[in-house]
Design a protein around this nucleic acid. Structure first.
Lengths: 216, 216
DNA sequence: TAGATTGTTAATCGATTAACAATC
DNA sequence: TAGATTGTTAATCGATTAACAATC
């Protein structure tokens, strides 16, 4: 079997998003050309990306929107709700807890941690904030989230991720600017808004567009 | 002159970040090999990326950290402070206003807008919140920011960006999940956390790592 | 059947890496 | 000079696009 390019996997999420729109509009059938017009790729690329994972279409007809959407969700692992655990209930943390998009796209915060004892025990967005030091104890008992969302201060980030990894978690969405050091089997996504701003600065300065045409 | 790949421009920001670290550590000289070890690219790629923009090194010696850093900042347009205007002073907006990383990396909020009259007129993070409808009037008088940061609700996003464009702004960092429609000369960066979460889901589900090794 | 559109192979394009002459 | 490291060309690798047979 051929190696699937990472970028193809990422585009799958984009196709799913567009299919979701079509499904809501009541569209039942779509072609790769139509899907391409919605943005993100050219028709050949869409067909090729899909072909990495199976044969989802009907020759001469196209793709059935609902079937393809369900198939893609299964492939991406988003045919379920993923539970998020927040670390650091500061300004950013609170904003993330209230982010409607997460809920809508199948993500849901089910735990929140902070090290500040003034915050621990309070209820934020319906979640009781627990103490960061207790992650391992809490997680081993309840296994009540799948992905750690790191929104602590810079100085606490590494310490916090160490505890998260020690507790047995395997995936981290990192909003701190620190390059975290973790064992190889742990998945990390680093979010850095300033990188995106730099692309805008360069574009404004030189006039040549280096922005990403699609969300990252 | 050869076409410069967008990705090379993006990597420049990464190199600058690493050079900043070296500079703070008091390191004066660095080789492409050393820079590569700090992450982000292999030595040949670093030399090639830099070569798109000029000859910054000394053969047999390496790159002078401070000189290269200054040169890169100039190239990227970050040898100055960029002023940000916030649209939407909700949870996310407030979190962004308080984000220390922006300040540290040469970005600074100098204006804030909201359409909610309860918020307009209040001071948030030292900024008086103005009314969104007044962007054009305010901007044409003061020209007091360079980049619009869009953190409004979904339903107001397009309307808001229309006003921003009409006022004469050319760059937008978009935190809403909407695909904004703008004239071709406008630069837009779309930030979507859920895309990053999807990469984690796929990795967790299949075991094959499709995460980005470097911040985006 | 004729028209349409997939799935897949082949061609193209672009980006990364290796190699090495230039040169400090 | 000998050793080191850049800048740049050539080789490799991988991803995108074009083309078309398969087939509904």
């Amino acid at each position: 079997m051929r190696k699937i390019p990472n970028i193809a996997v990422i585009r799958l999420a984009l196709y799913a998003k567009n299919l979701e729109i079509l499904h809501k509009e009541g569209v039942e059938l779509v072609s790769s050309v139509k899907l391409a017009e919605m943005g993100g790729a050219n028709p050949a690329q869409i067909r090729k990306d899909l072909a990495y994972f199976g044969q989802f279409g009907v020759r001469g007809v196209g793709y059935y929107v609902k079937d393809l959407l369900d198939a893609l969700k299964k492939v991406m692992g988003t045919d379920r709700t993923w539970r998020l655990g927040l670390f650091g209930v500061g300004n950013l943390g609170r904003a993330l807890l209230g982010f409607k998009q997460f809920q809508e796209r199948g993500f849901c915060f089910t735990a929140a941690f902070d090290r500040d004892m003034d915050i621990v025990g309070t209820i934020v967005s319906g979640l009781e904030v627990a103490q960061s030091e207790d992650v391992k104890k809490i997680f081993e008992n309840s296994k009540n989230f799948d992905i750690a969302v790191l929104a602590t201060g810079v100085d606490r980030a590494q310490e916090c991720v160490d505890r998260v990894v020690d507790a047995g978690l395997r995936a981290v969405l990192n909003f701190t600017p620190i390059r975290l050091v973790v064992p190889p089997r742990i998945f990390i996504e680093n979010v850095d808004f300033t990188v995106r701003l730099h692309a805008l600065c360069y574009s404004l300065t030189t006039g040549s567009d280096v922005t990403h045409p699609h969300p990252r």
